[in-house]
Structure formats: C-alpha cells, structure tokens
Computed example of a mutant assay.
Amino acid sequence: MRAGAYPAFALTAFQSRLAYRNQVWASAFGELVISFAFIAIWTAAFAGQVVVDGATLPEMITYVMIAGLLYWNTDRLINDVGEAVRTGDITIFLLKPLSYPASLLATHFGHYVFDQLVVTLPVLLIVGFSVGLLPPASLFHALMALPFWALSWLMLFTLGALCGLLAFWLLTAFALEWFLKGIMALASGAIVPLWFMPGWLSGILGYLPFAWVSYYPTAIYLGKLDPPATFLYFGIGLAWLAALGGFLAWLWSRARHRLIVQGG
C-alpha cells in the first residue's frame, strides 16, 4: 500500500505544473536563449578551427545541449525541503507510513518528466532543426546513454536532497541551491567538458559523483568512451549512487531525531 502511494505524488506534481502555463512558456523561452548563447560562445571559441583538443564544433554543440539539459534544476527540490522545515510541515511526514526522501523522489520525478516533455524536448527540436545535432556515435552508445541518463537524474536528485536536508541544521535553505550550483558548474562538466580541463583537474573531477550528472552521459552519447570504459564508469557511478543513497538515508534518520528533540 505504501509503494502504491508514491506514483500519486509524481502524478500530482506533473498535473500541478499544467496550471502555470505562462511560467512554462517563460521557462522554455529562457532555456532556448541560454542554449543559443552557449552555442554562440563555443562557435566563437573554435574561431573557424575544425578540431580543438580532439573535439569538433558539431560535437561541442551537441555536448552543450545534452550536458546542459541533463543538469536538471534542483532549486525547487532544495527550496521545498527548506520551506517544509521553516513552516513545520515536515512534521506531517512523521505521522504518515511513508518515507519522506521517497516521497520527494516521486514528487520531483513528476516535475522532471514535465520539464523534459514540455521544456527540454521542444528546445532540442528547435536547436536540432535550426543548428543541427549529432546522432549517437553507435547503437551501443545510444543504448548505454539511456541507463546513464537515468543514473544522471538519480545522482542529481540525491545530491539535491542531501543539500536540502542540511536545512534541518541551518534552519533555512537560503543559498544552499547556489552552493550546489557553484559546485556543479565546475565539477559536472555541464559547461566545460572534462577533456578541456588540465589533466590533474579532470583526473580528480572524473572520479567525483558530479561528473555522472552531465559529463559521462554526454561523453557516452558522443562515443568518447569505448565499451570497457563505459561499463567501468557505469559501475563506478552505481557505487557512488549507492553510497550517496545510504548517506541520504542516514542523514534523514538524524534529521528526524533532531526534529523530535526540537519539538519536545
């Protein structure tokens, strides 16, 4: 019975977004402007050169579109947790036979599906028809890009939820989203691929969980990793997800204890 309740959270979140059509149009337009801005920057950076550090301009345009759009905005997730802590609504979940992290997962999966269908897909179609996007490097890379995509979202959700739960100790989520954005801007490869970074820096960032959010799914799509390396990094990503998921469960158990103590 508990498991059957979580799809309702996802469906409710999806349907709630339909009520704010103007906000949807504004988000799609803003995403489109940002996408063309990044395309213009990379076109200027290549300055007519065919290949730069082993990457072509069409590859970089495809990379910046996929990597940037994979980096789902976690502001809503972090602020939802912060607001629940601030108002005390978080106590409701202590009275329900439901897991608060699991309900967050379901709710924000609904938001994510809505964003992908209503914002991301139209932007990709417009850019694809106007500028052009590369297809997957091979059938293998196309098939492997799908589990990496799922891993990407789960990794980003877990990182966002961990930041959100810090509100139990800070008593506010203010600036937590900026903290995560700052790290992700550099470490996820959403803006600059790791192959353009100094060897020592890319070597470090390539083994941190942030790289599985944008860099590895896009690198797989473009064929930058061969099959053995693809399976290796997928396994490492799963290990990171399991470790972060365990840490999230532990942090929630500590947050619940802290909430009960504060509430008397």
Score class of each variant (00 low, 15 high):
T74P: 02
Q23E: 15
F210V: 05
P7G: 07
I41F: 12
D80K: 05
L121F: 10
I260C: 13
P227V: 13
S130H: 11
E83N: 13
A219V: 03
A5T: 05
A185P: 00
T172G: 08
P97I: 03
P227Y: 13
P135K: 08
I92C: 03
R21T: 09
G245K: 12
P228R: 11
Q262A: 15
W240I: 08
G206H: 04
V123Q: 04
F38M: 04
V118E: 00
A173I: 04
G88D: 08
Y112F: 12
G88P: 07
F157G: 00
P58K: 08
L117A: 12
Y20N: 14
A45T: 01
A229S: 14
I66H: 03
A187V: 03
G264L: 15
W178P: 01
G48H: 12
L156Y: 05
L241E: 02
L162E: 02
A26T: 15
V123E: 04
A243G: 14
F9Y: 09
A10R: 00
A102H: 06
L238C: 11
T62M: 06
V118T: 10
W250H: 15
D89T: 05
L225K: 07
A8I: 10
W250C: 13
I41P: 03
K224H: 14
Q116V: 15
F157P: 00
G54Y: 08
